[in-house]
Design a protein around this nucleic acid. Structure first.
Lengths: 249, 249
DNA sequence: ACCTGAACACCGTTCAAGT
DNA sequence: ACCTGAACACCGTTCAAGT
């Protein structure tokens, strides 16, 4: 019934020649939306603007896309197609994994707003699956057991998405975040002694340095933490079940 | 110029008695906004709805709040005031850190949309600073060097925020995400052999189990990875560091 | 001087009317 | 049958007019 899979695009209308004005296809809509996202950020893209750029009314898009959320998902997966999956010659699993995550981060960074968008979505398109597939194989090569690797892929992608999304707003800005810098600088020594003492550290490092360090942390942690080490400490939104805790096995 | 600090609230109008209808203060606006966020999610809150709930027109709010972004920041920091910072007796640093992050995650989870909101914001209010302060002291106790701890705090908070934000949309839903389940199930064995083989693992575990495992991974990684181990592998959006833009403002 | 109704410039989505 | 102009129900923000 309505179990539509938006990623199974119907065959593209035709494609020969280079028609000056496209005949309004799902493809054209996604391309234009991604273009707007890249040039003006998340709130610079809208169905109405896409429609008018394609010289139609907003209602026309609904023939090709069910709603804004679906367009978001399509845009994300199209962008993810740019992620470099192929490993370079002689790169070991560690280097390959680092390259892949770096490429993923770069793709998300190139279109401001894309990372924010990636959160509302579970990121399940063919291109997202390809990324997951590659990461799983690299972790297997690293000797990580399958059960652990499955969760590790989630952790890695989520973190990289988050770090890019966090800085998505700094698009135009330069230097370390001014609001952070100001707040940290003003943190009183008496009330916030550790923050005050660490204020230089808190603001130090380039994004690239912080990224590299964080990935290293995640990899080290993943290698050292098989799934067996899961003593539930602080449940997240766990309504019922469980009152007898602290039972390590 | 307009270097306002929105967290320095002017003294609350008066507070004695319990007036049935509040006289429209910044406090009342933030409380109502948070209430809407908690009951209807991010897109269930708007300046207009807050205004009408407070029985005024939307323009009136601008006397107390500069814009929607500022309201977001105020709402977030007010919510963060609920995070439990006090360590329980006899809890070691590890348990305390786990408790704190769990509390942080729970607070964000309680108001769907709060975590999403936390991304657009650098989270620098007094309550966010208190959390940072506490985490720094716990990591110091753990023997993590100051420079590493500073980055680690960012990593921990960012990850927890991200994991909550990712599931913010599952608010009403039950079980593992249907879209993910479907996509993983349909992943062809030939094209996605690892995904196919790991499909059970990818969907396994409760949110609480995954959360506990991830925190353990982060801690293990942080303990094993001092900042010295930072060989920049794949720069994120690194145009060309250092552009000498000293003409801020 | 303060407050706010009404207006402005946008949204996503629907649907009846036109081809 | 398909497409879409116009309408609907919202937004955040501004500002002139009223007190």
């Amino acid at each position: 019934m309505t179990l539509r899979n938006p990623f199974e695009a119907p065959p593209v209308a035709s494609r020969r020649g280079g028609p000056a004005k496209q005949p309004l296809s799902r493809d054209a809509i996604v391309v234009e939306a991604l273009r707007q996202l890249g040039s003006a950020g998340l709130k610079g893209m809208s169905l109405r603007k896409v429609a008018s750029a394609l010289q139609t009314g907003p209602a026309s898009l609904y023939a090709y896309v069910n709603d804004l959320d679906e367009l978001h998902a399509l845009v994300l997966d199209r962008a993810l197609g740019q992620v470099q999956l192929r490993r370079t010659a002689r790169a070991d699993w560690r280097q390959s994994l680092s390259n892949l995550l770096g490429s993923y981060a770069r793709v998300l960074s190139e279109s401001p707003g894309l990372a924010q968008l990636a959160f509302g979505i579970v990121a399940v398109g063919p291109n997202a699956l390809r990324i997951t597939e590659t990461l799983l194989s690299l972790l297997e090569e690293a000797g990580v057991e399958a059960a652990t690797a499955a969760w590790a892929v989630d952790l890695l992608l989520l973190y990289v998405t988050a770090i890019v999304a966090e800085h998505a707003n700094d698009f135009g800005r330069s230097g370390p975040d001014q609001a952070v810098a100001q707040a940290v600088a003003q943190a009183g020594e008496s009330e916030f002694p550790h923050v005050h003492a660490a204020r230089a550290h808190l603001l130090s490092g380039s994004p690239a340095q912080r990224f590299a360090w964080a990935i290293e942390v995640l990899l080290q942690g993943i290698l050292k933490t098989p799934r067996s080490a899961s003593a539930p400490p602080a449940p997240v939104r766990q309504g019922r079940a469980r009152k007898r805790s602290t039972r390590a096995d």
